[in-house]
């Protein structure tokens, strides 16, 4: 993780009053420059970022599970390799993001504990089950597509390490989205049973994907501060609209129907009108009552617990080595 300093953004060496530091921070944000790890920042900014980056990291790690279920059953070796590599990329994304959180003083082991103890959340989308191989394609198309809509603006996040991690992650997500869509195109050219699988997966994943952008703006209390800090760059509703506008022509090309009778082009707005997601469902899933919350958490917890002896052994071995070969 780079910690390059922007000269203008660095605080002077001499001690400064809190007011001066705050003014300097505000000016950096106002000029659209980046805050770097060693720069002074308000506690609220640091805490909000740690929470946001950690939740993003947790989402990558928990997000390995729904698709990971299908690596063993992928119906061709090429699809197996693609899916295996994609799930591996997600582990890599989790690693960069935990590293970005560590530049803010967080500790990966502590963040893992928070996830396992349910004190920090991950994206609610991963609490839905993957019922057929078409789900792998639809997750690539919708879920990675929604992630791209959410994350591309974060490539301009005011916090440098997060913004740089996002650039790399977005490139990989875009590759995954293209692979998912290509799988669906292939399946739609296949048998009737395959086309039915694709439509069924579209029906199940559409509304949860719209919920990935979070509650509507008038019910999203923390958004304003995050927008002011340039940690967040667009409102939930704006991003959701972009996703719908981007996806509709892709659905037409694919030959599937998006399961929303209210979905139609609004020439006056130059955008699509669409129905309202079931926000009660989103709240239930966030609170832990989705179809797969328990199983996702249990898998993560058991991997962590069953791996404890391995991590302890690695630590013990490193300590013995250090004692044998003391630094000169």
């Amino acid at each position: 993780m780079t910690t390059t300093h922007h000269a203008e953004a660095s605080p002077p060496e001499s001690p400064e009053s809190p007011e001066t530091l705050q003014e300097h921070f505000d000016a950096t944000i106002a000029r659209d420059q980046r805050i770097e790890p060693r720069d002074w920042m308000p506690d609220g900014y640091r805490k909000t970022l740690v929470r946001q980056i950690a939740q993003h990291a947790h989402s990558e790690i928990i997000g390995m599970q729904p698709e990971g279920e299908w690596i063993s059953r992928a119906p061709s070796l090429r699809r197996k390799a693609i899916l295996f590599a994609k799930v591996q990329d997600e582990a890599g994304h989790g690693l960069y993001l935990y590293s970005a959180a560590e530049t803010l003083g967080a500790d990966r082991a502590d963040l893992t504990d928070r996830l396992i103890e349910g004190r920090q959340k991950y994206s609610s989308i991963f609490n839905y089950p993957t019922l057929s191989f078409a789900d792998v394609g639809v997750i690539g198309w919708f879920v990675d597509g929604a992630a791209i809509c959410n994350q591309v603006p974060l490539c301009r996040s005011s916090y440098g390490p997060y913004a740089r991690a996002m650039v790399r992650i977005c490139k990989e997500e875009s590759f995954h989205q293209r692979q998912g869509y290509e799988l669906l195109m292939t399946m739609m050219r296949g048998t009737d049973a395959q086309r039915e699988m694709v439509q069924d997966a579209v029906d199940r994943w559409w509304w949860p994907s719209l919920m990935m952008f979070g509650p509507p703006d008038d019910a999203s209390p923390n958004s304003a501060q995050s927008m002011a800090w340039k940690i967040k760059r667009h409102s939930n509703d704006e991003l959701r609209q972009r996703f719908v506008d981007m996806t509709v022509p892709q659905a037409d090309k694919l030959g599937v129907t998006l399961p929303d009778p209210e979905l139609k082009w609004n020439a006056e707005r130059g955008r699509h009108d669409f129905g309202t997601p079931d926000w009660d469902e989103l709240m239930r899933v966030i609170k832990g009552d989705g179809p797969c919350n328990d199983q996702r958490m249990e898998r993560r917890r058991s991997a962590h617990e069953e791996g404890a002896w391995v991590r302890e052994a690695a630590t013990a071995h490193a300590a013995k080595r250090a004692r044998k070969e003391p630094a000169a």
Binding site: S72, A91, A303, E306, G307
Partner: peptide
């Protein structure tokens, strides 16, 4: 089968590399 079950994230990545 180790994916999502490995003792550490670095091992998830490494075992996936080897499998690939």
């Amino acid at each position: 089968e180790w994916i999502t079950r490995a003792p550490e994230l670095e091992e998830e990545v490494a075992l996936a590399n080897i499998g690939l």
